[in-house]
Design a protein around this nucleic acid. Structure first.
Lengths: 381, 381
DNA sequence: ACCTTTAGTCCATAATCTGCACATAATCCT
DNA sequence: AGGATTATGTGCAGATTATGGACTAAAGGT
């Protein structure tokens, strides 16, 4: 609740540009007349705003709309994929990734670099990322795209652009954004994967995205907006208490969800998720038990999460996606039994369709979200 | 994320009126020049906006400011307690309550009617409330106050103005607001008690208010705004899982916080909180054990809540306030031990200073919040 | 062909904020 | 005391942006 600034003529126009662009984004291709009706602005004003957005390459006209109605057909305006683009970045434990996405949400470019970043030096890793950015940017520019902004996903807690603690990288209090050449937002992997689900997923605008990785995280999206809490640390599902006197967790607590559903607990000695899936498919007792335990624990932790966060639905992603067939029924049973009387029906439990790319894609989605929320500021209108 | 409307000249002015009023509210008495600096508007514009707010009785001038600086002293503008007022209402299990609060947050009037509303008929109870409103309104008008809006706190879940389920009243799916004579917002007791803490408490703008009553609820305030989740059901701390295989809870789950820290569990046969406090003060073993168990359980549930919600601090209210001396140390110890490595320090655990009035006061606070957020719409400027 | 309907543009008008000038009212300095 | 300095608050011309009605354009119906 920062003291907000007054509205001036230029910010009124800035806001109206955003309103029009948002309407185009949300309600698909629309004519100027349709936009006027939906925004409450006059046709004149909308025409002027659309002209500015066309000029900036944010929208394009897509030929006449012949809708069978009588009267002069309108010209549909839609988001343009030809000029404005967003750069999504990710530093993770065993790879670096980048992607370029245009305003129509088409993924135009995707690059991954395997790397071993455990206990690494931030400067060195970010140098590699910088190289990757350079390469990807050059290629995008070759395709006529203008990269308007970037966002970076990291596996750790982020507070106001500062990477506080990434246990698996071994990084602490790193100003990652400052080490790149371009202005870049930074956020937690789980939050950005949630945005990935929002922008490249099923179309739902209210859900809890559960990201199974080495740790377990979650990102809550309510009405199309990520909920971050007071310090940006919300959504740490991995350390929700499942069994108060359970096994010790690396966080200092006991019986956290991560102890049962973290990657190490699930793999139980196997060396990859693929191996685990094979073992499960083959009916391996130990693997099945580990999954059943994880599913139960997930159900318990999600029960608490549903009571506290009230998500519209629950989307399982990361390593939980390939394991979904084995996790689903225990988790759903626990959730259904425990939520019981309290609400109509428990939230739907579904699997994410974005694979390992969720976080990079979400990073690009966040940039697109910003462009649409403030085209005047971002595009210099 | 409803399709937002465009900004027109009148909404620009409406917004600027709100910006000025918010600045006056948050930064105490300010001169026009000070307002101009903080809002980014020119002195001319601020003068014009302040004139409108003076006219409407929302602010008043409070004499010259002699601040020791040289130059002409400004005239301080502050919220006015003379005209605009808000009505807070509450229906609870054993009483009805109403209060009238002016814009300076002075409680001008407070009335409570004892009643036994368990398993009651909504229409009958709301008839009594209507009488109470009539009485209180008349008295407020006698004092020259104009009641601008009302809000009602109820002990149950509320979804978009509809009271879904109030187990202790025995009410289900009641359109409470429609049964009163005046336009009235309706919300959950815990959410409104949280707003009570925001408007009449310590001044913090980020906290989780934990409301101990017959059940246990919570309201999360982030940056001065209540977080409600997707359907308005967020903050059900009472059913966060503490022990997955603990005793059965009325919600259908097992080992929920409410089983350990609900009023029934704490009283353990005693017939009032006062009696329990006496027993605790006298060193009664059973009472002390019940409190220790409740404190531990609270610590566990709050650990999960902190990980998921990331509150700035935790405020204990309702029956937890008088019991705070006995709950504090077990809860704080559990929280401290379990949060361990994950964050700098666990959030502060404090006691609310608002007594049983928290929810009615918060209801009035919600109305004041609306007036300040949109003076033009509410006051007809 | 002609009427009706809807889309999009043009232009004069209205609402609001800005920027500068100016009156006002203190303190500071001599 | 009296002028210089400094800051507040208001008036007025000008700038920016949206509005509303008139007008042109392009279709379908009769």
């Amino acid at each position: 609740m920062v003291a907000s600034r007054g509205v001036r003529h230029d910010s009124m126009r800035a806001r109206n540009l955003a309103v029009v662009l948002q309407a185009v984004h949300r309600q698909g291709p629309l004519t100027r007349a349709g936009l006027a009706e939906r925004t409450g602005l006059t046709k004149t004003t909308v025409s002027s705003l659309v002209a500015a957005l066309l000029e900036a390459g944010a929208v394009s006209e897509s030929g006449a709309v012949r809708d069978g109605e009588r009267g002069r057909p309108g010209v549909a305006v839609e988001l343009s994929g030809h000029r404005v683009a967003a750069l999504g970045l990710e530093v993770n434990i065993d790879y670096l990734a980048a992607c370029v996405v245009d305003l129509t949400r088409s993924v135009r470019l995707r690059r991954t670099r395997p790397a071993d970043n455990r206990g690494s030096d931030p400067a060195g890793v970010l140098q590699l990322l910088r190289d990757l950015v350079k390469e990807v940017t050059a290629e995008a520019e070759g395709a006529g795209l203008r990269i308007i902004g970037a966002a970076l996903a990291v596996p750790g807690t982020v507070e106001g652009g500062l990477l506080r603690n990434a246990p698996h990288l071994g990084w602490r209090d790193v100003r990652v954004a400052d080490l790149l050449d371009l202005p870049c937002a930074v956020d937690n992997e789980a939050n950005l994967a949630a945005l990935g689900e929002l922008w490249f997923g099923s179309g739902a605008t209210d859900f809890l995205y559960v990201s199974g990785e080495i740790g377990v995280g979650a990102g809550l999206v309510v009405d199309g907006t990520v909920f971050r809490g007071t310090y940006g640390l919300a959504g740490e599902l991995g350390h929700v208490v499942v069994t108060p006197d359970g096994p010790a967790c690396r966080c200092g607590g006991r019986g956290c969800l991560e102890v049962y559903a973290g990657q190490d607990a699930l793999l139980g000695g196997l060396d990859s998720v693929a191996a685990l899936v094979n073992a499960l498919a083959a009916g391996d007792r130990r693997a099945l038990d580990a999954c059943a335990r994880a599913g139960d624990a997930l159900g318990v932790a999600l029960t608490s999460a549903v009571h506290l966060l009230d998500p519209g639905r629950i989307v399982l992603g990361g390593i939980f996606a390939p394991l979904f067939p084995w996790l689903e029924s225990p988790a759903r049973d626990v959730l259904g039994a425990r939520l019981g009387q309290m609400r109509g029906a428990p939230p739907a439990l579904v699997v994410s369709s974005n694979g390992a790319d969720a976080a990079v894609l979400g990073a690009a989605g966040m940039v697109i979200q910003r462009i649409i929320a403030d085209p005047a500021g971002v595009l210099g209108l």
